[in-house]
Simulated scan of single mutants.
Amino acid sequence: MLTVIERAGTDTDRSATWLCECECGNKKVVQGNALRQGKTRSCGCLNKQKSFIDETGNVYGKLTVIQRVPSTTQSKAKWLCQCECGNYREVEGTKLRKGKITHCGCDRKSTKGRVSPTKGKTFPTKVRPNQQYGALLVLGRVPRKGKGDVIWACRCMLCGGRTEIRSSSLTSRKTKSCGCLAGRPWEKRKQKKMSLRELLKGKVNPK
Rank of each mutant, 00 (worst) to 15 (best):
M1I: 02
V4N: 15
R7T: 00
R7G: 05
A8P: 08
G9V: 08
D11F: 10
D11S: 09
D11R: 14
T12S: 14
D13Q: 15
D13S: 15
R14D: 02
A16F: 06
W18V: 09
W18G: 00
L19Y: 06
C20M: 08
C22N: 00
C22P: 03
C22R: 14
N26H: 11
K27T: 06
K27Q: 05
K28A: 00
K28P: 01
V29Y: 12
Q31P: 14
Q31V: 03
A34D: 14
A34N: 05
L35D: 09
L35W: 06
R36H: 05
R36P: 05
Q37P: 04
G38V: 07
G38N: 08
K39L: 06
T40I: 10
C43M: 01
C43Q: 01
C45T: 00
C45E: 02
L46F: 08
S51F: 02
D54P: 05
E55A: 07
N58C: 00
N58A: 07
V59A: 03
G61Q: 02
L63C: 10
V65Q: 14
Q67E: 01
V69M: 15
V69T: 04
S71M: 03
K76E: 00
K78A: 06
L80R: 13
C81P: 02
C81L: 01
Q82K: 08
C85F: 01
G86V: 00
R89F: 03
R89P: 07
E92H: 12
T94R: 14
T94C: 07
K95G: 03
R97L: 06
K98V: 11
K98E: 03
I101M: 04
T102Q: 09
T102S: 10
H103S: 13
H103A: 05
C104K: 09
G105T: 00
R108A: 10
K109W: 06
G113Y: 09
G113I: 13
R114Q: 04
S116K: 14
K121C: 04
F123A: 12
P124S: 07
T125H: 08
P129H: 13
N130Q: 10
N130W: 02
Q132T: 03
Q132A: 10
L136I: 06
L136E: 10
V138T: 04
G140T: 05
G140E: 13
V142M: 12
K145W: 06
K147C: 13
D149E: 11
V150R: 10
I151Q: 14
W152P: 09
W152R: 11
C156T: 13
G160Y: 08
G161C: 09
R162V: 02
R162T: 06
T163C: 03
T163P: 08
I165E: 10
R166F: 06
S168L: 11
L170R: 04
T171E: 00
S172T: 10
R173F: 00
K174A: 02
T175I: 05
K176H: 09
S177N: 11
S177W: 01
L181E: 14
P185Q: 13
W186S: 08
W186V: 15
K190P: 04
K192T: 07
S195F: 14
S195C: 14
L199A: 07
L199F: 04
G202S: 01
K203W: 12
P206G: 13
P206Y: 10
